[in-house]
Nucleic acid binder design. Structure first.
Length: 462
RNA sequence: GCCGGGGUUCCCUAGCCUGGUAAGGGGUGGGCCUGGAGAGCCCAUGGGCCGAGAGGCCCUCGUGGGUUCAAAUCCCACCCCCGGCGCCA
């Protein structure tokens, strides 16, 4: 049974509690409860009327002559009442569903209460952070001030920001991209192209090794599928639509992978299903005006390797921990200092019951920035997509749980590499873990990315 | 885009012409049988409402309308899938 409906009838306080934790109106629960009761009562009456009508119909089949005519008149009269009752039931049901579908996923007990991202709670740090002396106080406040012992080294030169590094290297052009396509687009060249490919290969290789099935999904989805995987509000803010077609460009491979089994009933023996998607991602980034306008941190398109899991409800919280551990292992492998934060209720989004972000340390900015998002969506997506499984010991079909997590998103990973492995002379050291993925390409850099010698190319990155 | 074929319950399939409680097989679960297993036989198998329970009832044949006392079945519109033609990296 769908968890929201189950809680509404069996534990409405839990729903109210969840709404309050999210800073939302718990009154919607009572409203939904009211319409659920009205609906059940009206449906009961409707079923009784239909039963009468069915019985009449069956009698008519066996009768002849005036007796038959009389029953037909009776049935006709009954139909009018049924029609009225049907309208009533339909109205109550629509109202109840509208209310229930608007309730965000029930938050997990361990999700911290908060308003925005400043209330997210760091839970562990990794790596030796390179801290410019001008950022030291803020860094210490954020780490030791919160009781974390974090490894760091102080440098007396301030690393160049990732956006400016594109210009320094001469390998990215966002000015010409803006002219051709608009802001938040980019041309990447040379070593950064190899780096993008190597990052994806690195992530995909490890995910496959860990038992995740590689998947190239559709890059577009029908609206019906999209409504099952994401909040309706995202259609305006995040998702591109193809003009004149019922197709939407995917914002992440999470979405087509979630929709893979829509409408299906799986065997419990088939679970868990582990997928790793590789795809471009397209995002409008509406509502992000003024944020990260330079460079390639926040862009309309990038490549991503994603982790996705379908599992039985009892296992989803274990899988949630596994997915963030996988991501951490990938980022540890790259040697990029980072931390994991527990996303607070105000920053959680409606789909997830709990979310971890992995944030990389960005030496030029002196703060951690989101690289990975790891969510347990419980049955929020599977209810809407009608993805169920047959329990092994019999019993009614149950909704699966779905989880997703970034493995590596290419452009963001590149920004983290450009800042963390930058040398004072403007070169960038390539993480050792990526070198074997660059090895097959003769023209790819292997150890160091050096600024490109000028060939009359204006490397504007603005 | 045009022409043809199709969409039935967890899966496969029958029913559609000729309207009257959706048949059969497979899978799965349970039971009988057995020292144990298999075979065999029996029951169950989607969603929902009422009921303490036993049980009762309603809905469900791609979607939405229409005709009818009654629609998987007849009519209309739409969606999707497959094949052929055209176009094509």
């Amino acid at each position: 049974m769908w968890s929201i409906l189950y809680l509404l009838r069996n534990d409405p306080d839990k729903l109210r509690w969840s709404q309050e934790r999210r800073g939302l109106d718990p009154g919607i629960v009572d409203e939904a409860l009211k319409y659920d009761q009205l609906w059940r009562k009206a449906l009961k009456e409707l079923n009784e009327l239909r039963h009468q009508h069915n019985q009449l119909s069956r009698q008519i089949a066996r009768l002849r002559g005036p007796e038959r005519e009389a029953k037909i008149r009776e049935a006709k009269a009954l139909l009018k009442r049924i029609e009225e009752q049907e309208a009533l039931v339909k109205a109550y049901e629509a109202k109840r569903n509208e209310l229930l579908l608007s309730i965000p996923n029930v938050v997990h007990e361990s999700v911290p209460v908060g308003v925005d991202e400043s209330d997210n709670v760091p839970i562990r740090y990794y790596g030796r952070h390179r801290v410019w002396e001008g950022h030291l106080d803020a860094f210490l406040a954020e780490t030791e001030g919160r009781g974390f012992k974090v490894d760091y080294e102080v440098v007396d030169w301030r690393p160049i920001g990732h956006a400016d590094m594109l210009t320094v290297l001469g390998m990215g052009d966002t000015l010409r991209a803006a002219r051709a396509a608009g802001s938040r687009f980019y041309y990447l060249f040379d070593d950064l192209v190899w780096l993008d490919m190597a990052l994806l290969a690195y992530a995909l290789d490890h995910m496959a090794k860990w038992g995740f099935r590689p998947c190239i999904p559709p890059y577009m989805l029908r609206r019906e599928a999209y409504e099952g995987v994401t909040a309706l509000s995202d259609f305006e803010d995040a998702i591109y639509k193809l003009e004149g077609e019922d197709l939407y460009l995917i914002a992440t491979s999470e979405h087509p992978m979630a929709a893979l089994y829509m409408g299906e009933i799986l065997d419990e023996d088939d679970l868990p299903i582990l997928l790793t998607g590789i795809s471009p991602c397209f995002r409008k980034e509406a509502g992000a005006h003024g944020k990260d306008t330079k460079g390639i941190f926040r862009v309309h398109q990038f490549h991503k390797v994603e982790q996705f899991v379908f599992c039985v409800p009892e296992e989803s919280w274990d899988w949630h921990e596994r997915l963030i551990k996988n991501a951490e292992e990938l980022w540890r492998g790259l040697g990029i200092p980072h931390r994991v934060v527990n996303i607070c209720t105000g920053d959680l989004g409606v789909v997830a019951a709990k979310k971890y972000d992995l944030e990389a340390w960005m030496p030029a900015q002196g703060r951690w920035r989101e690289m990975v998002s790891c969510s347990n969506c419980t049955d929020w997506q599977s209810y809407r997509l009608r993805i169920r499984y047959r329990p092994k010991g019999g019993g009614p079909n149950r909704l699966v749980h779905t989880l997703n997590s970034t493995a590596i998103a290419s452009t963001r990973a590149i920004t983290a590499i450009l800042e963390n492995f930058q040398e004072p002379d403007g070169t960038v050291v390539i993480p050792k873990a990526l070198r074997r993925y660059l090895e097959p390409f003769d023209e790819a850099p292997k150890d160091i990315i050096r600024p490109r010698a000028k060939h009359g190319q204006r490397g504007g990155s603005a």
